[in-house]
């Protein structure tokens, strides 16, 4: 009870109502939406989830990672590989997958933070590790090499092995996204969360008031890597195929960063709003470019939309909406 009180303490009542309505809507959404609508909503939730995971590192602790595909890739590959080779289901495999991603995150984090790399330099280190791993997986037979790893497509519902139709994957990703939302709120309202914000604003001043900077940054990257690995596992079983070229691509890492940056870094709702905006734009532009039959047009619209957002709403879309409608969540 006191945990619940702490979680919702200080939140305006109307915001809580809105949240409740949103949750109910999401729970019943599959009955309201068609097949296409559900697939779009699944994408939104996926990017919201993985965006929240990335936001913990960049939005809260201020550490720019452009190599988060590493954790999604490692997680996805391990869970898929265990299932493919040994028939070990993802509910068990996910523990190994998350542990491996946390280990990878610890290595990147320890090396980067130990040597006080920050900003672009740290970002490049994360890219380098991700690319390095991509090439390694290209040559690793167990993971299928550059030819990829394929899971048998199986529409019969087998929840124990995370096999089934979109509905199953919808509720799993909804649970992950909603759980992470609560987790982020709990983290922000804790000592650790405040320490992260202090590190983001000024690491030297933070350390002077007793913040164990290295330890806090390590926890941030480990939590973020663990959640990203979950997203990777979910993604691997949803799409049933994995290629190093896409699993560890820099483009994938960048995709993870867009929803939180566009929605509003460091906010709870930013990654979710950003995911809605991005996926929505993506779908609209896909339809538009199909009208014109020109490949690349979709991406041009997309690029233009990004340009407009970053030029006119550099702090993100959500803080602006929150301000206008009185939801009261600002970037902290």
């Amino acid at each position: 009870m006191s945990l619940l009180a702490r979680l919702i303490g200080g939140v305006p009542a109307r915001s809580l109502w809105c949240l409740g309505v949103l949750l109910v809507l999401l729970l019943v959404a599959p009955t309201l939406l068609g097949k296409y609508g559900l697939s779009v909503l699944i994408l939104v939730l996926y990017f919201a989830f993985v965006g929240q995971a990335w936001n913990i590192m960049m939005g809260f602790a201020g550490q720019l990672s452009l190599g988060h595909a590493l954790y999604a890739g490692v997680g996805g590959y391990i869970a898929a590989g265990l299932f493919f080779h040994y028939g070990i289901g993802p509910w068990a495999g996910v523990f190994v997958a998350v542990a491996a991603a946390v280990a990878a995150g610890s290595i990147v984090g320890y090396l980067g933070f130990r040597f006080s790399l920050a900003g672009v330099y740290f970002a490049l280190l994360t890219i380098a590790f991700s690319e390095f791993t991509r090439i390694a997986f290209d040559h690793w037979g167990w993971a299928g090499g550059s030819g990829g790893l394929f899971l048998k497509v199986d529409a019969t519902s087998d929840i124990l092995n995370l096999r089934g139709g979109p509905l199953l994957f919808y509720y799993v990703i909804l649970a992950l996204a909603a759980g992470t939302f609560v987790l982020c709120r709990a983290l922000l309202e804790s000592r650790l969360g405040r320490y992260w914000l202090a590190i983001r604003e000024d690491p030297e001043a933070a350390q002077a008031v007793g913040v164990p900077v290295l330890r806090c940054k390590m926890i941030a990257i480990m939590i973020s890597a663990a959640l990203t690995a979950l997203a990777g596992v979910w993604n691997a079983f949803y799409y049933n195929n994995l290629f190093p070229e896409t699993a560890f691509a820099m483009g994938r890492s960048i995709e993870f960063t867009l929803a939180p940056i566009i929605g509003g870094l460091g906010t709870l709702f930013g990654p979710i709003v950003g995911a809605v905006v991005l996926t929505g734009l993506g779908e609209i532009f896909t339809d538009l470019s199909e009208v014109f039959h020109i490949s690349g047009l979709k991406q041009i619209f997309y690029g233009l939309a990004l340009l407009v957002i970053v030029m006119y709403r550099p702090a993100g879309v959500w803080p602006w909406i929150a301000d206008r409608f009185g939801f009261g969540e600002k970037r902290r």
Partner: peptide, 24 residues
């Protein structure tokens, strides 16, 4: 001076206070 610029005045000092008072 090195304030935590993006945080409020109260939150700035709260970060310091958290050192010996772990409950927010």
């Amino acid at each position: 001076v090195k304030p935590f610029k993006g945080l409020s005045v109260l939150e700035n000092v709260t970060v310091g206070a958290l050192h010996r008072r772990p409950a927010l």
